[in-house]
Amino acid sequence: MYHDAFTLLAGAVDRTFAEINEGGKKTPEALSIPTKDDVYNTLIIPSIAGDGCSSCLVGAGGTYGFEGPGKNDQWAVCKPVPVVEFPSSARSGDPGAPGLYRTYRNGSGNACPS
């Protein structure tokens, strides 16, 4: 999951960078660069609303998000958890397949994005 971990941080940087440099064209030297605090503040914005996902991590391990500060100890929510047999006899299903266990989601009837 090293890919997804880096992508989570880079995605938060990109969203922060876009927001703090909104409006008008700036030279590269005039662009604001996010700090660790800005990135943290982006990461703790809940990424799932209802059964939709505005800023979920679309990672190699599925589509999942986080619940915000103080909730779920910063563990991923809606992360698909396939059960894999080896030697293989049955598939677990695609990351969004119904019946596949997904990690804890508080509220909203445990709805997760597909």
Binding site: M1, A5, K36, D37, G61, Q74, W75, A76, K79, T103
Partner: peptide
């Protein structure tokens, strides 16, 4: 206050305010 992401941490008691986990526990 450094955001940190654990890619393969699964022990459910590995928690800290700035520590995010992309894996299930």
């Amino acid at each position: 206050s450094i955001p940190t992401v654990g890619p393969v941490i699964t022990a459910a008691n590995m928690n800290s305010p700035y520590f995010f986990k992309t894996s299930p526990n």
